[in-house]
Simulated assay, not measured.
Amino acid sequence: MVATSDTAIVLMNLGSPDSTAVPDVKKYLLEFLMDKRVIDYPWLMRKLLVGGVIVPKRAEKSAEAYKSIWWEEGSPLIVLTKQLQKALQHDMEMPVEIMMRYGNPSPEFTFDKLVKEHPGLKNVVLVPLYPHYAMSSFETAAEYAKEIYRKKRYPFALKVIEPFYRHPDYIHALAESMRPYVEQEFDHLLFSYHGVPVRHIRKGDVTGSHCLKVNDCCHVDSKAHKQCYRHQVTVTAELVAKELGIPREKWSLCFQSRLGREEWIRPYTDERLRALPGEGVKKLLVVCPAFVSDCLETLEEIAVEGKHTFIESGGDSFTMIPCVNTHPEWVKTLGILCREKMDAVMV
């Protein structure tokens, strides 16, 4: 194994505005939505759409949404990531830092900090906190960190942990974080994943002939699965449901947070929340495994707006299962993933 004094771990999450003030939210949205892997239009078209239409329309509303879930300590996502850092540091003999894809702390800030505080650093293990591969999540995080790393020519080797959507320890950790909720009486469990445009699924298909073209493509073996978000979230849901002993007819998956008018992968979460009461589902559990830390998309979009939609549509009971956050089994899994990567460095 790599000597611990030579190695550091960096946890990389999505990021958050610095505050709920409209200027800070606007700055964050501009950085996020101008990312070519989030809205993959040509630069000028993206600039006109994001800067001229989306951000001016959404900034104030988004600021209000952030205010509704903001904690006294700050952004829930940032606070939870720092708590995760602290918990993992307790189990590891090497420094553990955090960085964000958007906002602060930036990759450059964190890499500079590591070099300054650990002059003998030889290896950095980067953990993008995304279980599944998507162009707009894992890929943009990993590639942006690599871009900063190459640009500044840091003296350490950078090793990136790949998506861990089917890793047995991750599946176990997710299942254990959910277990107290599924052991209570419920009618249905909804896996609500962050959505992506259909175009992204097709664009990421390395074969050019599998995703959304082959019948039941997510269950037909293909090289495309390595970068297919739809396949990977399906596998996670199936493995977790199996570990928890939930019969197939008692769970389903859907996709939230779509933006714009183009087609995104279906079914859509808001539509399912409206339909489920009419299908006899009165007691609903919702879990959001695209995220490892609770954030705006879970605390506001699902726990508040989603609950309202379900109850107004005739549901009786709605429970959002928290993300893995700092669950002991998740912290343990992170340690396993990092040790596996460090051992691989020595092979």
Score class of each variant (00 low, 15 high):
T7W: 09
L11N: 12
N13Q: 11
N13A: 15
S16K: 07
D18C: 08
S19L: 04
T20H: 02
V22I: 15
V25I: 07
V25T: 04
K27N: 14
L29Y: 08
L33I: 05
D35F: 07
R37L: 15
R37I: 12
V38L: 13
I39W: 03
P42N: 10
L49H: 04
L49W: 01
L49S: 02
G51C: 02
G52E: 00
P56S: 02
A59P: 01
S62Q: 03
Y66L: 07
Y66K: 10
G74F: 06
P76D: 02
P76R: 12
V79Y: 08
V79K: 13
V79C: 10
K82G: 12
L84M: 14
Q85S: 08
H90Q: 14
D91Q: 15
E93C: 13
E93D: 15
E97I: 06
I98R: 04
R101Q: 12
E108Y: 02
F109C: 09
T110I: 09
L114Y: 04
V115E: 12
K116H: 13
E117F: 04
H118W: 07
G120F: 05
L126Q: 04
P131A: 09
H132E: 00
Y133R: 12
Y133V: 11
A134K: 11
A142P: 08
E143C: 11
A145R: 06
E147V: 10
L158K: 06
K159E: 06
I161D: 02
F164L: 05
Y165R: 06
P168L: 06
D169M: 06
Y170I: 01
Y170L: 09
H172G: 00
A175P: 04
A175F: 01
A175S: 14
E176F: 04
E176T: 10
M178K: 03
Y181T: 05
Y181A: 05
E185F: 02
H188C: 01
L189V: 02
Y193H: 11
Y193R: 09
H194D: 04
G195T: 09
V196L: 14
V198K: 15
H200L: 09
G204W: 00
G204V: 09
C211P: 06
K213I: 06
D216L: 11
V220F: 05
K223E: 13
K226F: 07
Q227K: 15
H231G: 05
T234I: 00
L239R: 09
E249K: 09
K250N: 07
W251T: 00
F255I: 01
Q256R: 13
S257R: 06
G260T: 02
E263R: 15
W264R: 10
W264A: 12
W264F: 07
T269Y: 02
T269P: 10
D270L: 02
L273A: 04
E279L: 14
G280M: 09
K283L: 01
L284T: 00
L284Y: 03
L284C: 04
C288H: 07
F291Y: 12
C295W: 08
L296E: 09
L299A: 07
E300P: 06
E301T: 11
E305K: 13
E305Q: 14
K307H: 04
H308Q: 14
F310M: 05
F310W: 03
I311V: 13
S313V: 09
T319R: 14
N325I: 10
T326M: 01
E329S: 13
W330L: 07
V331L: 10
K332F: 08
K332L: 05
L337F: 14
C338T: 15
C338Q: 04
C338A: 15
E340P: 10
K341N: 00
V347T: 11
